[in-house]
Amino acid sequence: MIELVYFAWVRERIGAASEPYDGSAATVRDLVNELRAREPRYDLVFSDLTSLRVAIDQELVDFDAPLTNAKEVAFFPPMTGG
């Protein structure tokens, strides 16, 4: 079981801050494709991956990263701190 967490406009457009994922996707990209096929709101959010960032267990990774042993996968727009 992986916890999916969303921030900023990703959270708003998906309409949830987090949700459990129980599937068998091997990489972040596989997971994204699975979500996109699920419902239009996911398809819309993940339509342009260059406008998104992803972290596995609080570490930034790229979309081809494997989900092996992942506990938490976070999706969010590029950060705007400082």
């Binding site: 921030f7 900023a8 972290a55 969010f76 727009p77 950060m79 705007t80 701190g81 400082g82």
Partner: peptide, 26 residues
Amino acid sequence: LMDYLKSRAPFWKKEWIDGTPRWVEA
């Protein structure tokens, strides 16, 4: 550290201008 915090620390800014919210773009 400032350059890092701007674009790699996990913060997101939303501006409220004349009552309308807008996410600040990187």
